[in-house]
């Protein structure tokens, strides 16, 4: 692992400004996000941290276009996400975002290949290309010999690799990983983190949501959330230093 390589930043992919999200729980209104602003560039490897209840999951759902904010503005690659309907959000998730879940979320009765093909089906890719691309990505994550295995025939680490392959197959703008090592032992976890590092080096943009500091350490930038607000963002500091150095 080569954690000190920092790739030059690309253009802004995610630009959220003063986002809030309220949930109504019975008679009580929960303010999960109280005004969060964040810019994420292409080629970034960013960790979002925070204790439970900090709004970390809510922010992740916003970033992943699974949910829309109560107020504030969200632009993804210059497109206004806050105003999109369900199907437009689905299209953005399909093309632009690769999800990696803590519980892998593979379809239990489908082979690795069929699991990885799924986003391509929703993208309308023809069957031959689908199979070719899915097999290619599975080989890239080191599962070239596990194409026809069902999830229950794979180890935890292998399952997460299938999930990562699924996230990569549609060549998304960002990979959004929610506690990707949460269900793995530490050794397998390290292997998965090495895979993310490798993806970063190959030019992918990665957003990691975690509460484990030793996992977050792999990222180049860390954003801490507390009580629905950004507590610290070292990326902002780095950029300020960069701009100071330029003047």
């Amino acid at each position: 692992m080569n954690a000190d390589v920092i790739r030059p930043l690309g253009p802004i992919i995610i630009d959220i400004a003063n986002i809030t999200k309220d949930y109504v729980m019975g008679e009580e209104v929960v303010h999960a996000l109280r005004g969060v602003s964040l810019q994420i560039h292409s080629n970034e490897y960013i960790a979002i941290m925070g204790p439970s209840g900090s709004g970390k999951s809510t922010l992740m759902n916003m970033l992943g276009c699974l949910d829309t904010p109560t107020s504030g503005h969200y632009e993804f690659n210059g497109r206004n996400v806050s105003a999109m309907n369900d199907d437009e959000l689905a299209a953005i998730r399909n093309r632009e975002i690769g999800f990696v879940f803590q519980t892998f979320n593979l379809l239990p009765r489908a082979s690795s290949l069929r699991n990885v093909e799924l986003p391509l089906i929703y993208a309308g890719v023809d069957p031959e290309t689908r199979e070719e691309r899915a097999a290619q990505v599975l080989r890239d994550v080191g599962l070239g010999d596990r194409l026809d295995h069902k999830p229950n025939e794979l180890s935890g680490g292998q399952r997460q690799r299938v999930a990562i392959a699924r996230a990569l197959v549609n060549d998304p703008s960002i990979i959004l990983a929610d506690e990707p090592t949460g269900n793995l032992d530490s050794k397998t976890g390290q292997e998965i983190m090495a895979l993310f590092e490798n993806l970063y080096q190959r030019g992918h943009t990665i957003i990691l949501v975690t509460h484990e500091p030793y996992i977050a350490r792999h990222a180049r930038r860390t954003v801490h959330l507390r009580d629905g607000l950004i507590e610290s963002d070292d990326g902002a500091v780095v950029r300020e230093l960069e701009s100071l150095a330029l003047t």
């Binding site: 199907d87 799924l118 929703y122």
Partner: peptide
């Protein structure tokens, strides 16, 4: 339900 959630996250639309 969880599978439906996963499919939606991967880009399945309502129609799908």
């Amino acid at each position: 339900t969880k599978e439906i959630g996963t499919r939606k996250a991967l880009g399945a639309r309502r129609r799908t």
